[in-house]
Design a protein around this nucleic acid. Structure first.
Lengths: 124, 124
DNA sequence: GGTGGTGTACTATATCTATAATACAACCGG
DNA sequence: CCGGTTGTATTATAGATATAGTACACCACC
């Protein structure tokens, strides 16, 4: 029941994973306090437990509480989500995606320059 | 019931929108034939109807059939999904996203060059 | 030694997604 | 004129998602 091949999350799950990634770990109470929206304690617990069932987080007992920690890296999630977007909407073409990323949008020339520099560095 | 503010689709919905975007419009039967997976006629119909309820497609009667057509552009969907990804996983930072896009991935130097050129053109 | 706080486990509900069976209308070809 | 084809409408089911109530355990403190 702990099999996982691709780190894809729902928005709510991401809210919670973000907390764990930022802090390294967290109890239900800690996570609950850290996220923006006001959720019931049991709601956060439930989501953490489904995340655990899916193999994305683990926990160890700490006193009477459970301390949850991520089992996947944030980068792994970024990669999974990006790959899925690429495949689903951009025919797998990074160019199409980059085009969309810089199209009209409120990217300053400054920002565009930084993006180009990033590629320059990548190209050595 | 036809209000829509953001063009976000599920994977199945995207399969169908892709057909409509590619061909301009389609009847249930046409869409069904065009998509990869074998789905029951009624399955395609149901999805088209929920897409219509959400305001993403419209239809007019053609003979006894309904001809569906997109009410949102493919670019609009790309933009919505990309924006959501950016916000949800990349702290809204295009640089982080570009970094992930070119990181390790099997991008050839050729591809990287094309990406840089794209930015060059964008920068005028 | 009972009460409140903190915690987990279990259970429940509403909604959405994915898929499809069933039922029925209408046209067209022989 | 009748049966197959093509189509829509209606209804159903299973699973996922989002949210939370209820029940119960335990410790700490007055």
């Amino acid at each position: 029941m702990s099999q996982r091949d691709d780190a894809i999350f729902t928005e709510r799950e991401l809210d919670i994973m973000d907390v764990l990634w930022d802090r390294g770990s967290g109890t239900v109470g800690e996570v609950r306090e850290a996220i923006q929206d006001e959720l019931a304690y049991t709601t956060v617990l439930t989501i953490l437990r489904t995340l655990e069932k899916k193999g994305y987080v683990g926990h160890e007992t700490e006193g009477k509480a459970h301390r949850y920690h991520p089992l996947v890296e944030r980068d792994e999630a970024r990669e999974s989500h990006l790959r899925r977007l690429l495949r689903n909407l951009f025919s797998g073409s990074p160019e199409l995606l980059l085009t969309q990323l810089v199209s009209d949008r409120d990217l300053s020339e400054e920002e565009l320059r930084r993006l180009r520099e990033l590629l320059d560095r990548r190209l050595g």
